[in-house]
Computed example of a mutant assay.
Amino acid sequence: LAFFYGQSRIFFVMARDGLLPRGLARVSSSGAPVRTTLFTVLIVGTIAAFFPLNEIVALANAGTLVAFAAVAVSMLVLRRRAPDAPRGYRAPAAWLVGPVAIAGCVYLFVSLPSTTHWWFLVWNALGVALYWAYAGRARPDTDHAGEVRDG
């Protein structure tokens, strides 16, 4: 359920930014992103209907590990590029924690079944292809709320 709700919110933001059809970014009268939730149900339900649970779980683990490693890399990059930027939270011993986190994620990713590695590559290649096919046409002159920027 955590992945499900998180993914529906990610789809909502992507739709709001024009990376998915903007109609998905509409919210109900209570402010809930019902359309992206239903869109996510359709995708998750379709995947669950055709793939074994252990493969879905392994693929979700792969994605989570790559995301955690990306956060650790980003933390180190931001520490280098913008050392004085205001931060709401600072990781202690970032130059120790970051590389250890990256190494741990890489180790766990490599420990996943080789079929998971292939499915992960296929899934990401499909995502990049869809991004370039649809989102590549998104208007770059709009802000995150879909408003046209001046200039």
Rank of each mutant, 00 (worst) to 15 (best):
Y131A: 05
W118F: 13
A49N: 08
A70W: 13
A145I: 01
V71Y: 15
T142N: 08
F12Y: 15
W95P: 00
M75I: 00
V44M: 06
T116S: 08
F109D: 01
A135P: 13
A62L: 05
A103G: 08
F109G: 00
I10A: 15
W119S: 10
G98S: 09
P92L: 05
P83E: 07
M14N: 12
A67T: 14
P33K: 04
L24M: 06
G45D: 06
S30L: 11
C105P: 10
L19P: 03
A15H: 10
D17Y: 12
F39Y: 15
A69Q: 07
G63P: 09
F12V: 00
L65E: 12
L126P: 00
F50W: 10
L130G: 14
A2L: 09
W95R: 14
A60R: 01
A94R: 05
A91M: 14
R139M: 02
G45W: 06
S111M: 10
A103D: 09
A2Y: 11
A67N: 12
W123G: 00
H144S: 11
S28D: 15
V66H: 08
N124D: 02
G127L: 12
A138W: 07
L121V: 14
I43S: 06
A58H: 10
P83R: 00
L1N: 14
V44L: 06
R22I: 04
L38T: 05
N124R: 01
L76E: 11
N61L: 03
F39G: 01
T36N: 10
A49V: 00
I43T: 11
V110W: 15
Y134P: 12
F68W: 08
P83D: 08
V77N: 02
R137Q: 15
P113H: 01
I56V: 15
V66M: 11
T36F: 09
I47K: 02
V97P: 10
A133E: 08
P33Q: 04
A103S: 07
G151C: 03
L20Y: 09
T40W: 04
R149V: 14
D143S: 03
V34Q: 11
T142E: 14
G88N: 09
A48K: 11
G31V: 08
L59G: 08
L65Q: 09
